[in-house]
Design a protein around this nucleic acid. Sequence first.
RNA 1: CGGAGUGUGGCUCAGUCUGGUAGAGCACCGCGUUCGGGACGCGGGGGUCGCAGGUUCGAAUCCUGCCACUCCGACCA
Length: 437
Amino acid sequence: MRLSRYFMPTLREAPSDAVVVSHQLMLRAGMIRQEAAGIYAWLPLGLRVLKKIEQIVREEMDRAGAIEVLMPTLQLADLWRESGRYEDYGDEMLRITDRHKRDLLYGPTAEEVITEIFRAYVKSYKDLPKNLYNIQWKFRDERRPRFGVMRGREFLMKDAYSFDVDEAAARKSYNRMFIAYLNTYARMGLNVVPMKADPGPIGGDLSHEFIILADTGESQVFCHKDLVEMGAPGDVDWDGDLQPLVEQRTNLYAATEEMHDEAAFAAVPEDKRLSARGIEVGHIFYFGEKYSKPMKATVAGPDGQDRPIHGGSYGVGVSRLTGAIIEASHDEAGIIWPDAVAPFGAAVINLRPGDAGTDEVAEKAYQALIAAGKDPLLDDSDQRPGAKFAAIDLVGIPWQLVVGPKGVADGTVEIKRRATGEKQTLTLEEALKVISA
RNA sequence: CGGAGUGUGGCUCAGUCUGGUAGAGCACCGCGUUCGGGACGCGGGGGUCGCAGGUUCGAAUCCUGCCACUCCGACCA
């Protein structure tokens, strides 16, 4: 992409209504534009990041055996009356009436819809387990939206739903999602810690929040230090026994403020106790027959008798992650995107557009990076060098390849790694090799 | 939803108390000088001061109502 033809409206100063750093930087980098409280338009740069995150989530869901569907944003109120949640949900649910005076709602989640779909087709235990997911916009009319896209009213969420014949089978589905989540966040360059969460009315131990650690996180969290650096399991035998991998994490202490147990935390060796701020970027839980019973989602068991399926649901805040990643990865100059989610893989900065020498080298570098699949941004804008550096630092592109008249004169370019600030002066060929490595 | 606050050009803000022909910086346009970490000079464009009503000879400024947004708190991907 050539910057001169792109739409990347960066700001030198942050709008005053942004208080958290990710919100400020997203506005300054021209990623989003607020249209109403908690409702944002995604500008080209923001959309690129959002799509990359979405795609990682999708790939890891697929790998774990989940199957993608797309459910509507608008749902029929009657479906929610069946589950009993239409009245329970309260003002957070945006209710809509269509021209025929039918009650609709903008989905805050999709347990009812997926259960309706499932029950229409699946009749036998032999068709289980199944896990269906969708990545769709949700709306929750938060009393107080804030923190930019991290607590918007409209947000993009991946929600997966598992269907199993009994609790033991549901636990296996749960474990698959647990591992898939670890892999998902690891690919985005995040250290994530699964923490025991409030399981709600169902009880049991099958509810975890996935928390990334960031100084600006909105909740206080407590955990065993080893969890932070434990890493992700990667690809595993998804049909095998995942319980040991899960227990390796869940046996160490980790809890958010609401679930915190001082006594249990005190039992963690003192040098391993970590108290930090965290941001919730995922939540998984098992809810058993909560929806299948009232909505009559049953399958025939081996004995021929119908029984309600055991369900679980698994959410990832896709749009929230754009903000959360920035919270975890930025400096005074701006955003530092992990390579996997960066809007562009590299920026070629032509310090003097119009100069035959720099134009030629910059174009050559740009074409080579395209060929290498780095999806580069070519800064061919007519600005002074300082302004270019500042803007490219701000938007956080992982590699900068600087083509200036001095370098061209002696056959070199400069590359800079955004994350470390490390600069090297190399020939173009060497530079391309480093960036493409 | 309780409490607090803010709405003035794309962004940051002054002007409001004490009514008298709407300002600055950044951004934008033109020309020139510049050009390796957000340059400089000269010239220029852009705002019915959130909306509606009221008071007044005269309202960004005072009064009333409404709307939007933000912050703090209780709740949540």
